[in-house]
Design a protein around this nucleic acid. Structure first.
Length: 504
RNA sequence: CGCGGGGUGGAGCAGUCUGGUAGCUCGUUAGGCUCAUAACCUAAAGGUCAACGGUUCAAAUCCGUUCCCCGCAACCA
C-alpha cells in the first residue's frame, strides 16, 4: 500500500447550494480517507476539498442578491461546510480559490507559463449577447442569435490569452498509454484516449477581459484580464499542499495526488487540461483520476431547470446520515450512473440495514442478555460445525476482501466492499438458523450456546470494524453495545420503515 | 456510414475477453422456525440472454447484418 495518500474532491462552484452529486463525490472521498487512515497512519492521509469562487456566474448571482462577489461566496461556502459537517466528512483541508495561498500560486503559474511561452496572446472572435452579457463561440451560435434568449448577437473580437494545449498532446497520449490506471474506470480511459487520438487539441482560452468579467484572478502580465475558471480552479490541487520556489520549481510533501475523485461531467478538464498544465510546469501528473457516474432523478438528469434537484441535507435529515452514506456507496457500482429515489433508499434501508445488519445485532444481543445475562461467554471450543468453521474463516478473510475492493491500487469499488461485508452478515443470519440456539438452550447445552454467541459477537465486531469508513456513527453505535466482556442492547439501530404507516 | 458503451426472468445487475447445464440482489408465491425489527431460513414460479443469419459437436459468449437505447463531439463548474 502507498506510503502516503493524497486525495481530492473537485472544488465545488459556489453559485448555488450543494446537491446530491456534490455530496456523492465527497462522501466517497471521505470513505476512502477513513479507510486509509488506520492502515497507513492518520498523518499520511490528506483529504482536500474546497470551493471554486471566481467567475461570471458568481459575479451575477451576487449582483442579483445585491452583494459583493466575495460576500456572496462567503455566504454560500457556509452551506458546503455545514453540509460536510452534517455528513461526517473528515476533510483535512478546505481550500477556497479566493484565499491568498491559492491566488498567489495561480499568479505564479501564470507567470511561469507566460515566460516559458506556453501562454500567448491572440485575437479571439465570437458573438456577444449584450442583454445576457454572454459570449458565444461560432460553434455555439446559429443564425447569429443568442442560444439563450434568441436575440440578435454582436460580432466581437477581443484580445485574450491562450494556453498551448496542443504542444503537449502527444506527450499526454503517451502518458495515458503508459499508465493504465491514470484514468478510471476503463470506459473513461477509452473515451479520453480516443478523443485525443481523433482530435487535434486547440489551445485553451484562459482569460477574460475585465470589462466582461471582473471577478477573478488578474493576469500578472496583463492587468486588463482575469484568468478563466478552469485554469484557476484546477491549480487548487497543488496550491493547497505546496509552493513554488524562486526558480519556479514546485515542492510538496503530498504531490503527486494519489487520487482525484471527480464526476464524469468534468473528466475532460481533469484528464486533459490538468495534466497538460502540469507537464508545462514540469510537475508530475496525478496518479489516478477517477470519474464516477451521475445520480439520475426518476431516470432523468438532475437539473435546476426541471426542478428535480435533490437536497442532500433534506434526505439525510429524513433517513439519517448513515443511511444516506450507505445508500450512495452501495446502490450502484462506483463509476456507473444510478437512479436516485426515496423508494430505492427505503428498499435498501429495510432489506440491508434493518433486516440484515440491524436484526443480526439485535437478535444476537437479545440472546446474550437472555441466556448469559449480558456477559460475553468465554471460549470453550465446543463448536465444531462446518458452519462455525466457515464463519471463522470469513471473519478472518473479510479484511482482505474489503481491501481488494477498496484499498488495492486499481480498485475503488465501494459497493463491492459492502457486498463482501454483507456476505458475512448473511452467513451469520443463516448460521443462527442452522445452529438453532433455542434448542441448545432447552437442552441446557450451555457451553455450545456460549461459543455460538461468542462467534456471533466476533462476527458483529468484525463487521462494525469494516463498516467504520462507510458508516462511522453506526460502527460506534455497535461498539457502544458491545463493551469489554459485556453487551448492552440498545434500541434497534435501523427500525424498519413501514411504507404504509409512515408519513415519509 | 464521426467515436464509444449497452440491450440477459417483474425491477436492477453479473456472466461475453479464456464458447460447454443461465447466476446474484430485490420483488412474487408456498413452507419452516421463534433468538429477532411481520424479521430470519428453505423451496418454488418466472428468461427462445434485442432480431436475423453464419462458424462449431456445442454460442448470451466468436463472426456478419439489422433494430433500439445511452454517453462523447473543444472551453460547458
Amino acid at each position: 500500500m502507498a506510503k502516503k495518500f493524497y486525495l481530492t474532491t473537485p472544488l465545488y462552484y459556489v453559485n448555488a447550494s450543494p446537491h446530491i452529486g456534490h455530496s456523492y463525490t465527497t462522501i466517497a472521498a471521505d470513505c476512502l480517507a477513513r479507510y486509509m487512515r488506520p492502515r497507513i497512519g492518520k498523518e499520511n492521509v490528506w483529504l482536500l476539498t474546497g470551493t471554486d469562487e471566481h467567475g461570471q456566474k458568481i459575479q451575477r448571482a451576487a449582483e442579483k442578491e445585491g452583494l459583493g462577489a466575495q460576500e456572496f461566496a462567503d455566504k454560500t461556502v457556509v452551506r458546503f461546510k455545514s453540509l460536510w459537517q452534517e455528513l461526517d466528512i473528515s476533510y483535512d483541508d478546505f481550500i477556497r480559490t479566493t484565499e491568498p495561498r491559492h491566488t498567489n500560486t495561480v499568479e505564479k503559474v501564470l507567470d511561469i507559463l507566460h515566460e516559458k511561452g506556453d501562454i500567448y496572446e491572440a485575437k479571439y472572435q465570437g458573438w456577444y449577447c449584450v442583454p445576457c452579457e454572454t459570449f458565444w463561440t461560432d460553434s455555439q451560435v446559429s443564425e447569429k442569435k443568442c442560444p439563450d434568449c434568441l436575440r440578435p448577437l454582436e460580432k466581437i473580437s477581443e484580445a485574450n490569452y491562450f494556453f498551448k494545449l496542443s504542444k503537449y498532446q502527444d506527450r499526454l497520449i503517451r502518458h495515458i498509454k503508459a499508465n493504465p490506471d491514470f484514468i478510471k474506470p476503463v470506459i473513461r480511459y477509452n473515451e479520453v484516449l480516443s478523443f485525443l487520438e481523433l482530435n487535434k487539441l486547440t489551445d485553451l482560452c484562459i482569460s477574460r477581459p475585465k470589462e466582461r468579467l471582473e471577478w477573478g484572478i488578474e493576469l500578472p502580465f496583463s492587468p486588463g484580464h482575469v484568468t478563466y475558471v478552469w485554469f484557476d480552479a484546477l491549480i487548487n490541487y497543488i496550491s493547497a499542499v505546496g509552493e513554488f520556489d524562486n526558480q519556479g520549481n514546485y515542492h510538496s510533501k503530498w504531490w503527486p495526488a494519489d487520487l482525484h475523485l471527480i464526476g464524469k461531467d468534468i473528466l475532460r478538464q481533469h484528464a486533459i487540461y490538468w495534466p497538460i498544465m502540469l507537464f508545462a510546469l514540469d510537475i508530475e501528473p496525478p496518479k489516478t483520476i477517477f470519474a464516477h457516474g451521475w445520480w439520475l432523478i426518476n431516470e432523468s438528469k438532475m437539473s435546476k431547470s426541471t426542478g428535480n434537484v435533490v437536497s442532500p441535507l433534506e434526505i439525510s435529515k429524513k433517513f439519517g446520515v448513515e443511511t444516506y452514506r450507505y445508500f450512495l456507496l452501495r446502490d450502484v457500482a462506483f463509476g456507473q450512473d444510478g437512479n436516485f429515489s426515496e423508494e430505492a433508499i427505503i428498499k435498501r434501508f429495510n432489506s440491508d440495514l434493518a433486516n440484515d445488519l440491524g436484526n443480526l445485532i439485535y437478535r444476537t444481543l437479545t440472546m446474550a442478555e437472555k441466556y448469559f445475562q449480558g456477559n460475553i461467554p468465554a471460549a470453550k471450543q465446543t463448536l465444531e460445525t462446518p458452519q462455525a468453521k466457515n464463519i471463522e474463516e470469513k471473519i478472518k478473510s473479510l479484511d482482505a476482501r474489503v481491501f481488494d475492493a477498496l484499498g488495492a491500487e486499481s480498485a475503488v469499488n465501494f459497493s463491492q466492499a459492502l457486498e463482501a461485508i454483507w456476505e458475512l452478515i448473511n452467513i451469520a443470519n443463516k448460521f443462527i438458523e442452522d445452529t438453532k440456539p433455542w434448542n441448545l438452550a432447552k437442552e441446557k447445552k450451555t457451553e455450545e450456546l456460549g461459543d455460538f454467541i461468542l462467534l456471533l459477537i466476533n462476527t458483529i465486531k468484525e463487521v462494525s470494524g469494516q463498516l467504520l469508513p462507510f458508516m462511522p456513527k453506526t460502527a460506534e453505535a455497535i461498539k457502544a453495545q458491545i463493551r469489554g466482556d459485556k453487551v448492552k442492547k440498545g434500541k434497534p439501530l435501523f427500525p424498519r420503515i413501514d411504507i404504509q404507516n409512515s408519513n415519509l
